[in-house]
Write a protein that binds this DNA or RNA. Structure first.
Lengths: 214, 214
DNA sequence: AGTTTCTGATTGACAGACCAGTCAGAATCT
DNA sequence: AGATTCTGACTGGTCTGTCAATCAGAAACT
């Protein structure tokens, strides 16, 4: 047994944050595949390769685990579009294009994460969980989108209510996400982005074309 | 006690279909308020004012009850837009306007039903339940919407892919529904319809204005 | 009309399964 | 040694589905 190659003994004892993240990722997968209602701690533990009791050691209750998982997804999402904005050019059109495109980046737009989001949307409405964990980030997103639309309407000489335009763009992104989760008509993330661009082009034809920013 | 007004003693023994519909309506309410995961047969029975065993008598299993409830909602939705189409004028623009407006009629667009729909969307993705019960109706809806958009693009001299336009309009309706279910930013069904009209106006400016059909 | 029979709806209690959370103790690290 | 992480078994509670008994009304019969 005394192989000289230690084959990286996977540290049985992981650091607190590493373990928690591992459990949260396992939770995302289980929720995505089984749905919220049928997710059990045993499933999560098995997926993470640890014992059931350990899940309760790191997260006091099942509700706490699910709440933290939702917060984790929400924060991941916020950071994704925030860094996309930071990397984009300064004009309203460039910023808006970056924000729309961010929703379909591979890190965010995976079948697993989409399905998990959908499960949380469906279940959270009854409890204040969703607002607690995502309300603030969602407000940030909406505010930013409305601000960019308002800037673009003004600078681009467009007409229409920026609030309504921002809302259409936002729910188009959301709705296309839902479409991607339903198995029957599986269009690609590229087609999804194309759909969002069709909407942007309808409102801002001088700045957006069928393939994105002009 | 012998009041001459019999106050219609609620027939203890109801006809099969009446009872089933009553249980399904109770299920919608319970799912809407408690969410899919926390819905129990006991809750449904209590809401319907009957015993727990009777629910299992009429619907063999809990899954069957939820599946039939989803089918009931789907069929109700389909009939709503189908009769709206039948009542509307024959031109593509009139038909399209009727279809968009149908989503926000009081019979369909209630907080309870919206919340129930959202719960089913979130939970059904993992199982083929949703496709079984709604796939066909959803396909009918999408096909009709795409056909109307194609007609309107052709006859109105517009540009753009009717498939993408129909998709944007469809997910806008869906997304606005989701917005109406989240408690924090409660805009009215009227504002919701206004949002959809903003989208229609962006694609078909010669036929749609801020308040609907021109 | 009154009685009996039949059918199918309805109830309440029960059994089996499952699950979240607890805990005592083992393993591991500092 | 002391602290922290981790395991696996156990518990208390809840939920689903089943079943025997009950009951209301319809149908058939006298």
């Amino acid at each position: 047994m005394s192989h000289l190659a230690p084959t990286i003994p996977p540290p049985r004892k992981l650091s607190r944050e590493t373990r928690r993240t591992q459990v949260i990722e396992a939770t995302i997968e289980v929720v995505a595949t089984q749905g919220y209602a049928r997710t059990t701690l045993t499933d999560v533990a098995r997926k993470a390769g640890i014992s059931h009791g350990l899940v309760n050691f790191h997260f006091k209750t099942k509700d706490a685990l699910l709440a933290e998982t939702l917060g984790y997804l929400s924060e991941e999402y916020r950071q994704n579009w925030a860094s996309a904005l930071a990397a984009a050019g300064p004009s309203p059109a460039e910023q808006l294009a970056a924000m729309l495109r961010a929703d379909f980046e591979p890190a965010i737009c995976t079948p697993t994460r989409l399905a998990a989001w959908l499960s949380f949307w469906g279940e959270a409405q009854s409890r204040p969980l969703y607002q607690d964990r995502c309300g603030e980030n969602e407000q940030l997103y909406t505010n930013k989108l409305e601000q960019l639309c308002a800037d673009l309407v003004r600078q681009g000489g467009y007409h229409g209510d920026p609030i309504l335009i921002a809302r259409v763009l936002r729910v188009t992104c959301e709705g296309v996400w839902v479409d991607l989760s339903s198995i029957i008509n599986p269009y690609t993330p590229a087609e999804a982005l194309q759909t969002v661009h069709a909407a942007a082009m309808a409102f801002f034809p001088k700045h957006f074309g069928a393939t994105g920013l002009l």
